[in-house]
């Protein structure tokens, strides 16, 4: 295989834990203890090929945004390394470091909180190209106009403020701002989650179009699996700070191997399923402050064995392009009964 655009190698990231409102009040009232260390990423490895769209899926707090920010070089790692084009980004200096930062852009979930409310749209989009001398100063307005057209915003609205736009339009502003510095890699962190259903399709279509036109590579973080299936070439599933499975999109949807992935796929609400009797994975998602020993999924896993409570399952290749971290079947993970039957039928016929 060619050298990947991005190579994340055994990256660990720890934080001192953030507290939520309920906890902060409780701490002040003396009811709770002060925070501890969060294991946001626990030896995560991942490669992203040039031009690839990788979907990153997992439950809240499992480390998706942290991985996105680490990959973008916005967050230093606690251990491990991130390489772009074979170069460890932590070792880059000066001009090379700056180029690297610009070449990866993040598009966030809430466009409003990432747009300066006191600046006009034209200033927001034109700011970085002006600052970094992407084009000569005099050409910035023309660039802004081009970018607005590219993301489907009427350039006549260049003098408006963010609050004068709808949610979908604000997300377009965020995308135009990211594109303004000519990145080749976009991290889309829940970029459509805050949008209404009727607007989501517009923004997804825009991202796919831009990807094709500009030859972009995408890391698409989302909890919406139907969107991920639509847009991604490959899907990576995380659980509590670890990658538990990664495979080409059709393969992970047709033949998921990790019991967590299987549960997740089963529970996605679908409009073609009626009066569903929800039959669910039991238990809470454990806290990343105090992750369980061994396989992080073992307290909720219907197949957990003794070894699962003791040893972390390594991420191994179960079939071409398909990696999984599960002790079942000698590390190949769990295949649902139907698939096994189909395989057997296939063999016997």
């Amino acid at each position: 295989m060619n050298q990947p655009l991005i190579k994340v190698d055994t990256v660990t990231k720890h934080f001192v834990r953030k507290t939520d409102v309920a906890e902060r009040i409780a701490i002040r009232a003396g009811l709770a203890e002060e925070p501890k260390i969060v294991h946001a990423l626990d030896e995560v490895s991942l490669e992203i090929a040039k031009g690839e769209v990788v979907g990153l899926v997992g439950e809240s707090g499992c480390g998706k945004s942290t991985l996105g920010r680490v990959v973008a070089g916005m967050l230093p790692v606690t251990a491990g390394s991130v390489a772009r084009d074979g170069q460890d980004i932590a070792t880059l200096k000066g001009r090379a470091a700056k180029d690297n930062r610009l070449a990866t852009q993040i598009i966030f979930q809430d466009p409003m909180s990432s747009l300066n409310p006191r600046k006009k749209v034209g200033e927001i989009i034109g700011e970085a190209p002006r600052l970094h001398g992407i084009v000569p100063r005099g050409e910035v307005p023309a660039l802004v106009e081009k970018l607005m057209g590219q993301v489907g915003l009427d350039p006549a609205m260049v003098n408006r403020y963010p609050h004068q736009f709808s949610g979908g339009q604000r997300q377009r502003i965020g995308i135009a701002r990211a594109l303004a510095v000519n990145p080749d890699f976009l991290v889309c962190d829940e970029s459509i989650a805050a949008l209404d259903v009727s607007i989501q399709a517009q923004v997804i279509n825009l991202l796919v179009q831009l990807k094709q036109d500009l030859g972009l590579t995408l890391l698409f973080i989302s909890h919406d699996l139907s969107v991920v299936r639509y847009i991604s070439d490959r899907v990576v599933i995380m659980y509590l700070g670890r990658v538990v499975e990664s495979a080409p999109t059709h393969q992970i949807f047709d033949r998921p191997r990790h019991p967590y992935t299987q549960a997740l796929l089963e529970e996605i609400p679908r409009i073609d399923r009626r009066g569903h009797r929800f039959n669910t994975v039991k238990g809470e998602i454990p806290s990343p402050v105090n992750p369980p020993k061994g396989c992080h999924f073992h307290p909720r896993c219907p197949f957990a064995m003794d070894i699962c409570r003791q040893e972390r399952p390594p991420l191994v290749t179960a079939e071409t392009g398909h990696t999984v971290a599960c002790h079942l079947n000698g590390g190949a993970g769990h295949l649902p009964a139907t698939t096994q039957q189909q395989t057997q039928q296939g063999v016997s016929s």
Partner: peptide
């Protein structure tokens, strides 16, 4: 999250 949503719906 999806698995928690599913528990509550159930």
């Amino acid at each position: 999250d999806v698995t928690i949503q599913s528990q509550i719906l159930s």
